[in-house]
Amino acid sequence: MAGISQDLAARGTHGLMEIVGAIYDTVLDRGIWPDVLKKVSLFIPGAASAVFWEDAASNQGDVYFYDDGISPRYRQLYFSKYVGLNPITIPRFFAQVDEPIATADLVPYEEFLQTSFYREWAEPQGLVDFVSITLEKTARKAAMFGVFRHARHGIVDETARRRMRLLAPHIQRAVLISKVVDFKRDEAEMFAQTLDGLRAAVILVDAGGRIVHANAAAQALLSRGDVIHSVSGALGASSRQAGERLRGIFLGAAKGDNAIGKDGIALPLMAKTGERYVAHALPLTSRARQQAGRKHGAVAAIFIHKARLEAPSPPEAIAEAFGLTMAELRVLFAIVEVGGVPQVAEVLGIAASTVKTHLGRLYEKTGAARQVDLVKLVAGFSSSLVT
């Protein structure tokens, strides 16, 4: 494995382009995600990587795609028990989208090593760190891409962060488009025909932005003309800024997968009625996707769908409402999950006196008088914000 990792690193830009191309191919065939993520794990490098979601309020989560680097036993154990005990679950909800976040960015590393999560789940596997990027946040959960670091890799360094930044926009785009449309393997070979049966608006464009194919949903949007429109056969947007960004996306897609970068991951569009839409751009310039767009000479597929108005997640809403620090928020959710002061101290790897100090501040800031009141407070925020 180390030899392959060094080979990928040595190949530099070519190795990166190969991985990025494979990431976009997952849109047409989700079954290749495990192999793609194995390449990602070697590139960062790390012991395992996954695209997953977590709900910090309910302490639930699951994996969308993974590379089998974590054994089934530990994967099941994480989501059945340790997702709520992981000290970085709550702080991760406050992480900036697109920016790599390592364990030490969220909690003191020495404190992390004292937690039951590390001692009982991470350490037995030889895992020492985790670096992740938030792909999407909603009121209910956050979708993330993350890589586990083994002792042989060491804690997350700047090289790992830089490589995460290189891959993140492409993974984000592929995942978001996969949410909009689910191609079957045989349908991917009939790409244009398949587009016509999709509920989302999909438009194929060439390098100049000329519309070469539009499905029924896209034709309906074009006929309305208040979100997108056609000018002399070229795709445009209702706002000048969005139109300029679209043109940049078309030009970037023509130059290859890596050139498109962050543009078009989630381009906001607004109708004259105030309705909000989101556009995602998928390059069609390599591998299976090149075959898909070849018939029309298309360089990109633009997926457009209505956007939902999302409320902040319960942890974010609670922190803002009561002015809680990250440490206080961790103690609050630990009390909800595991109970009394001694148990919380054990789980978080801090002294019982420290827990009591945070607890006193929680009572003062929230107006609660007992731990049960804090549990009710969290439950109230969670139920009112679930969509």
Rank of each mutant, 00 (worst) to 15 (best):
A9M: 13
A9Y: 12
A9I: 15
A10L: 05
A10Y: 03
R11C: 10
R11H: 10
G12T: 06
H14P: 04
H14Q: 11
G15N: 05
G15Y: 03
G15Q: 02
G15T: 06
G15E: 00
L16R: 14
E18C: 13
I19A: 02
I19H: 01
V20G: 11
V20L: 15
V20C: 12
G21P: 11
G21M: 05
G21Q: 08
G21N: 13
G21V: 09
I23D: 07
D25G: 15
D25Y: 10
D25V: 13
T26D: 04
T26S: 13
T26A: 14
L28Y: 00
L28I: 03
D29N: 15
R30N: 12
R30G: 14
G31I: 10
W33G: 08
P34I: 10
D35S: 15
L37D: 06
L37S: 10
K38L: 07
K39D: 14
K39I: 03
V40Q: 00
V40F: 03
S41L: 01
S41G: 12
L42E: 09
F43H: 06
F43C: 03
I44R: 00
I44M: 04
I44P: 03
P45R: 01
P45N: 05
G46K: 08
G46L: 11
G46N: 12
A47T: 03
A47F: 01
A48H: 01
A48S: 12
A50E: 04
A50D: 03
V51H: 01
W53D: 01
W53F: 06
E54Q: 14
A56C: 08
S58D: 05
S58G: 07
S58R: 12
N59V: 02
D62G: 14
D62A: 15
V63W: 02
Y64R: 03
F65W: 09
Y66S: 10
Y66E: 07
Y66M: 04
Y66P: 00
D67E: 02
D68N: 10
D68C: 07
I70L: 13
I70N: 07
S71E: 06
S71D: 07
